Simulated scan of single mutants.
Amino acid sequence: MRSLLQFTCCAILLSLTFTLRAEPTLPALVAVDVGHTVSAPGAISARGRTELEFNLALAGKLTHALQRLGLRTILVNHDGLIESLEARPRSVPDADFFISIHHDSVSEWELETWWWEGQQHTFSDRWQGHSMFVSRRNPELERSLLCGSAIGARMQRMGFEPTEKNARRREYADRLHAVHFFDNLVVLHHAVQPALLFEAGVIKHRDEELLLRDPARQARMADAIATGIAACLMAGR
């Protein structure tokens, strides 16, 4: 009886071991952070729209694009109520990658005024284009930069043009793909995983603002970002 029991237990353990080993690895988990909050909605576009609104639209499309590629996603600050920048990456400690979605503005001294639909707004048509930031204080700088470069390469392959605006103050980590160092960005250096801040474009630029509001273009940009992230994460598996 004891021999039969031992044989049965061993058979169960072997079966369980085989099942666990055969279990497919879970797809990578990407945390998509919506930049800014309801109380501090960021820059105001050339036609009076908040940056938060732009960020929400692109972040939502990015999560769908990542899911179509088979990656798992979690949307951080989807309601615009997470005030603490430190809390954003800390809320997703199990994520394999953290990307914070933003839209860019310009310095006050570069702004001009114009009238749009009966209201006065500020604008600057000097700069347009996307850019990215990584932090040397992030524990996964190498992978952060690799993902930034992969995203940048895909963006340019799909016809999106980067900006050189941020080179005035931020050192390039990868000039070709518009990735800059920004060591003290809180959401990046508090992340325990590779992390990147993505600036989709300059909402103070009157023509680019209209492009950034276009849902079809947002979807194309999201596809480019998602493809770059997927390529980067698969390279490390």
Rank of each mutant, 00 (worst) to 15 (best):
L26F: 14
L26D: 15
P27Y: 01
A28I: 06
L29K: 09
L29F: 14
A31W: 01
A31N: 04
V32N: 04
V34C: 09
G35T: 12
H36R: 08
H36Y: 07
T37E: 06
T37K: 08
T37A: 09
V38H: 10
S39A: 14
S39H: 12
S39N: 13
S39I: 15
P41A: 14
P41N: 13
P41D: 11
G42N: 04
I44M: 13
I44L: 13
I44K: 11
S45M: 02
A46M: 02
R47V: 15
R47A: 14
R49W: 11
T50R: 03
E51S: 02
E51P: 00
E51V: 03
E53P: 04
E53D: 13
F54Q: 05
N55P: 00
N55F: 00
A57F: 00
A57K: 00
L58D: 07
L58Q: 10
L58W: 11
A59H: 00
G60D: 00
G60Y: 07
K61T: 02
L62I: 14
L62W: 03
T63M: 03
H64N: 13
H64V: 15
A65R: 07
A65E: 06
A65T: 09
Q67K: 13
R68Q: 12
G70E: 06
G70N: 04
L71G: 01
L71Q: 00
R72N: 11
T73Y: 01
I74P: 06
L75I: 08
L75V: 10
V76P: 04
V76A: 09
V76L: 10
H78M: 13
H78P: 07
D79G: 06
D79A: 15
D79I: 11
D79T: 15
D79S: 12
G80C: 06
G80R: 04
G80L: 08
G80H: 04
L81S: 08
L81V: 13
L81E: 12
I82C: 04
I82V: 14
E83N: 10
E83H: 10
E83G: 05
E83Q: 12
S84C: 02
S84D: 05
S84M: 03
L85H: 03
E86N: 08
P89Q: 07
R90A: 15
